[in-house]
Design a protein around this nucleic acid. Structure first.
Length: 430
DNA sequence: CTTCTCACG
DNA sequence: ACGTACGTGAGAAGG
């Protein structure tokens, strides 16, 4: 039986979600069509270039046919890779990237894949409702294992999110960066986009009461700004001064911090290290870093262990607010299944608590908007982010309302921080 | 119906 | 010895 608090939360959320679906979101269909045209042109060119390497036409969507082309006709070496269930070498992005210098067809294939994916996004975004002229995705409130939403028809939670660097010249990346620009507020309105900063790591901090994580979120640096968790992690793990952490070290620390949320192993970390640094890292090297991490962040270690213990004795995991997820894998006779169960036992309370918090925030924002008689509307939720369509004359009130409501909807032992952005499209570029 | 690939958090 | 990072949805191919 579900915890009554969570049940109440779901009932309140239901109402908010219903309005969000009915209101929908406005799409710049013109921009979408123009982008589609350019993508199709780009795609046709790529097909011509790729087919130049093949005798007879092959279907690029077919992994077996692509395998034949790459590893038989063109004689590429599939690098130490294992075969999948169909006896194929994987040709996904990460594997193709390793072959990028081996043959000129590889970058073409990568671009081809991207254009196909972007073309499909274009097609989906044009399906606006003929009456409302807006796009009404379905935010599925029940069904996920952790308490998150999912979204379908179309899925509005996986729209490409690419920020352009200055001087970017890659045409595909530029096209990709347009997708969030296609989401626009109705006339007389702007968007406010509010996202929780590192909410999952903050949840871990609260659950673990880890000394160093608490320090990261409660002390300020010399400029009066909050410490950067990843930088602090790097300085602890690599035994260096906070101010002397390099970008690469910070990046490694970041992948440790996110990895721990998923129950990453030394094997997985070694692969990440190899990718980040471009130099091979063994499992043993990764183990040294991991043990150093858990030695310093011993509160995190204790916390993760007790999450596993809890799920082991109860058969389910639980968020701070009492949302449960059954984890039958923990009693499996197969070790690999039990290990998978342990990862779920660590991850689910963390991801689930974050999901609980943003649901509470959605309800609280909705109540505030109602009592203040505002016309602002919630139009999208993307796990740790809320997008509001706000009339110009409500901008000022809404900015403080949204930020304060989200940051104070629950009281953890460290502050929750919300980043706020506003603009005339979802990309907030200008 | 399953597998692969790719987009998001 | 075992397999190796969690949670989603969409589209295409192949059995």
């Amino acid at each position: 039986m579900m915890n009554q608090d969570i049940l109440d939360l779901e009932y309140k959320t239901l109402h908010v979600v219903m309005k969000m679906e009915l209101d929908g979101v406005k799409i710049d269909v013109k921009k979408c069509k123009e982008t589609l045209k350019q993508l199709k042109k780009f795609n046709e060119k790529l097909i011509r270039q790729i087919q130049a390497f093949t005798e007879d036409e092959i279907n690029l969507e077919s992994p077996p046919q692509l395998n034949k082309l790459l590893f038989e006709t063109l004689q590429l070496q599939p690098e130490i890779d294992k075969v999948g269930k169909n006896g194929c070498y994987s040709t996904d992005k990460s594997h193709l990237k390793k072959l990028i210098d081996k043959h000129e067809i590889v970058p073409l294939l990568l671009d081809y894949r991207k254009t196909i994916s972007l073309i499909n996004f274009c097609k989906q975004l044009q399906n606006v409702n003929p009456i409302t002229k807006r796009l009404h995705g379905q935010f599925n409130q029940s069904g996920t294992a952790t308490g998150r939403f999912s979204c379908s028809k179309p899925n509005l939670q996986n729209i490409p999110n690419v920020k352009l660097n200055d001087g970017e010249i890659n045409e595909l990346i530029i096209l990709e960066s347009r997708f969030r620009e296609m989401f626009i507020p109705k006339k007389g309105c702007q968007f406010i986009c509010a996202d929780y900063s590192q909410i999952e790591i903050r949840v871990v901090t609260d659950m673990s009461q880890d000394e160093y994580l608490l320090k990261a979120y409660t002390t300020k640096d010399t400029n009066g700004k909050n410490l950067d968790v990843h930088r602090l992690t790097a300085s602890e793990v690599f035994n260096i001064k906070y101010s002397e952490v390099t970008d690469e070290q910070r990046s490694i620390a970041k992948s440790i911090n996110f990895g721990l949320i998923y129950g990453k192993t030394a094997f997985g970390l070694s692969a990440t290290l190899t990718e980040i640094t471009g130099k091979h890292h063994s499992k043993e090297q990764a183990e040294v870093i991991m043990s150093k991490y858990f030695q310093r962040f011993s509160g995190v270690k204790t916390c993760l262990d007790s999450l596993i213990d809890f799920a082991d004795t109860n058969g389910y995991s639980e968020t701070i607010y009492g949302r449960r997820r059954p984890i039958p894998q923990l009693s499996s006779s197969k070790l690999s299944e039990r290990n998978a169960g342990k990862r779920l036992a660590m991850n689910s309370p963390i991801q689930g608590t974050a999901a609980d918090i943003i649901k509470m925030a959605m309800v609280a924002c909705d109540e505030q908007i109602k009592t203040k008689n505002l016309k602002s509307k919630l139009v999208l939720q993307v796990h740790d982010e809320l997008l509001f369509e706000v009339p110009d004359d409500e901008m000022e009130v809404m900015e403080t309302l949204v930020k304060n409501t989200m940051e104070n909807v629950v009281r953890l032992s460290i502050p929750l921080e919300v980043g706020l952005d506003k603009g005339h499209n979802w990309a907030m570029a200008h």
